[in-house]
């Protein structure tokens, strides 16, 4: 029964996410579409983090690193394409691109490589040490991005025209929303499948008990590393979309506030819940939008609300609505 309730809530969330932009389009409220697109993209970043954090128990405080890497993949490729300057001329010429599909592939690969290196080092630690060492890597990349002048440093990098997708006018807000929504749906489907797969069970096992996994011949380190890399790739993809949403990337995408915010989406919505990040990102953006213009000190009530959720609504928003989870 409880599972059913969560399924109903998930369906309602999905329906809202699709219906709101359509209604907004009909009413000519273009900005609402932009806002919901932002929700979809940040939710996608959260879906990525949720795989490491919710299912793998890997509390990464450095996912902004992958979000930013994805963003810079989009920014750098597009700026090279727009300036007709190849990115590299040796050993063979690599030119920039304004095709989203190419950019996504690069963002996925770049964040996977970064996660492989970072994960290989950080996964030797656990608990609080893991939280802090992931933060340290993100800070390293952040300071590098600020002081490296080639791609704008702290000023960031503008993408003057949103990158293209075959057959769609991506500058039309509803088309771009559609792209983001489809990618979010794919990621949600993928993570649902992943959790139920043999890999998902092994990940769950590695989270519960390293020793027992070793004794049945499964190497928990490799399982965790794989989860970390997958998680980073999804967050990196979200970063590429976020760059296209804003037509701009800057080191602020790599800052620890961003890591914190992605984490907030996941926890606010409900850790380890499939639609947790969607609910969390939606609520956060809604609050930011409603409170932001109303009151100079709007972050004060936002803080109080976050505090109340974490103290009294355990399991986040989804947990509050759907009740405590039944463990399989």
């Amino acid at each position: 029964m409880i599972m059913n309730r969560e399924t109903i809530i998930n369906s309602v969330l999905a329906a809202l996410l699709i219906a709101i932009p359509l209604v907004a389009q009909a009413m000519g409220e273009i900005f609402i579409i932009t806002l919901v697109t932002k929700v979809a993209i940040l939710a996608l970043a959260g879906v990525g983090l949720n795989i490491a954090l919710g299912y793998g128990g890997l509390v990464s405080f450095g996912h902004a690193a992958f979000f930013g890497i994805g963003g810079y993949a989009a920014g750098i490729l597009a700026s090279h394409a727009l300036n007709y300057q190849p990115i590299a001329t040796w050993p063979f010429e690599i030119s920039g691109s304004t095709q989203m599909i190419v950019i996504w592939a690069v963002a996925l690969i770049a964040s996977a490589l970064a996660a492989l290196v970072i994960g290989a080092i950080t996964l030797r630690t656990s608990g609080v040490y893991f939280i802090m060492i992931t933060l340290a890597f993100a800070q390293m990349i952040y300071y590098f991005a600020i002081s490296w002048p080639a791609y704008g440093g702290e000023d960031g990098l503008s993408i003057y025209v949103r990158n293209g997708f075959p057959g769609l006018n991506t500058l039309d807000p509803i088309s771009f929303f559609a792209i983001c929504a489809v990618l979010l749906a794919l990621a949600l489907w993928f993570s649902a499948v992943l959790v139920r797969s043999r890999f998902g069970l092994a990940l769950h096992g590695a989270r519960q008990n390293d020793q027992r996994m070793k004794s049945v011949g499964i190497a928990p380190f490799r399982i965790k590393l794989t989860a970390f890399v997958i998680s980073a790739m999804i967050t990196g993809l979200a970063g590429a979309l976020y760059a296209d949403l804003n037509r701009f990337v800057s080191p602020s995408m790599l800052s620890w506030h961003m890591s914190g915010e992605i984490m907030v989406f996941v926890i606010l919505g409900g850790v380890g819940r499939l639609f947790g990040p969607v609910a969390g990102a939606g609520l956060y953006i809604l609050l930011e939008h409603l409170l932001g213009g109303a009151f100079d000190y709007w972050q004060l009530p936002l803080g109080v609300l976050l505090l109340l959720v974490v103290l009294f609504a355990r399991g986040g928003l989804i947990g509050l609505l759907a009740g405590e989870r039944k463990h399989a």
């Binding site: 954090l53 509390v59 939280i131 803080g303 976050l306 505090l307």
Partner: peptide, 29 residues
């Protein structure tokens, strides 16, 4: 606040104290 968090996992602690930063900063301002 904190008293309710000892038995929670690190995640809840991170979120709650993140919220406290917002409250302290904007309250001070």
């Amino acid at each position: 606040v904190i008293r309710r968090l000892y038995r929670r996992d690190h995640l809840d602690q991170v979120l709650a104290t993140f919220a406290l930063i917002l409250i302290f900063s904007e309250g001070t301002r």
